[in-house]
Design a protein around this nucleic acid. Sequence first.
DNA 1: TCCCAGAGTCAGCTACTAAT
DNA 2: ATTAGTAGCTGACTCTGGGA
Length: 287
Amino acid sequence: MSEPNIYHLKYFSKAAELQSLAAAAKALNVSQPAISQAIRKLEDTLGCELLLHTKNRFKLTEEGRLLLEKSRGILAQLEDLKAELKGRSEIVTGSLSIATSSAVAHYLLPARLKDFMKAHGEVQPELHFGSVPEIAELVRSGKADFGIIIEENRLPGFEHRLLGEGGFTCVIRTGSQWPAAPRFLATQESPGWTELQKAWRRHTGTDARAALTVENWEVISQMSLLGMGVGFVPDFIAENQSGLKAAEEQNHWASKIRYKIYLIHLGEHQLAKPARLFVKSLGQQGF
DNA sequence: TCCCAGAGTCAGCTACTAAT
DNA sequence: ATTAGTAGCTGACTCTGGGA
C-alpha cells in the first residue's frame, strides 16, 4: 500500500475547500474520478474516513477536518520550498484572500493594500465581506486566508493579532446642531447599540431612542448625512467621512465605548506566503 | 416526469519501477 | 533490454437527488 503523496493531499484539500469533487477536479485540471480515488486512497492509507457522503454531497468528518488543517500547512510549506529552490523566493505570487467588514475594507484596508501591492505586484488580492460570524466562517473554511474584525472580545479557535483600537463617536451632519431629542443610528453588533444604550442611560438617566439599527457603519454614515439620526460609529469612520462631524460635546461618554481591530487566522504556519507577508506588514504598521 | 448536476464504478491506457 | 506489477489517469457510463 502506498503512502499518502502530495497530490492526494492537494486533491483532498481542494475538494474540502470547495465542498465539491467536481469543482476541485475542474480547479485542478484533472478528472473527477481522480479526485474521488485520491481521497479514497488517503482514507485507505490513513485508516479513517475523511468524508461523510450524504445525498450527492459530502461533509468532512472530524478526521477530515484535522487532515485539512494539517495539509494546508504542508502545502504552504511546499510552495515556499519550491519558490526558494527556484531561487526566486523574493518574487511572491499567488492569491491573498481577506475576509472583513465593508467598513474596514472601505476606510482602513486600501492604504495598506496599496503599499503591499506596490511591493508585491504579482499577488492577486481578493476581498470577502461579511459580519463577524461570517468572517470567522470564511477563515475557518479556508475561503479566506485571514479575517479582520472589529470586536471587543477574542473569538475562540483563532489566533489573534491586535491591529488597532479606539473609541466610538457620535456623528451628525456638518452644519447641523445636536438634536434636543436625539435618535441614534447604530449597529446590532457588539460594540454597538447595547453599549450605547447603557452609556446613554448612565449619561442622561433616560433611555436612548433608536432611529434605526443596521448592520453596516457605511449605511449609518449615509443616513447620518441625510439627517436621519445621530450616527454612532468608530472614530476612524468619523474622521474620514466627509459631510459628517463629530458631536464633540457628546464624546466624553461615547468614546468610553471601545473597539478593537483584530486580525484572525488559524495559525501562522498555515498561511500561504502572500498572506504571511501581508499579516507581517499589518502587524508592523497596524491601523 | 424529465432534465441536469454531482458522485461513483469500470475498463483501458500510460508511466514508472523492480526483477530477471 | 525485456517483462511484470503497480499507481494513477481518463472517458464512458450509471446512479441519485433536486428542481422545473
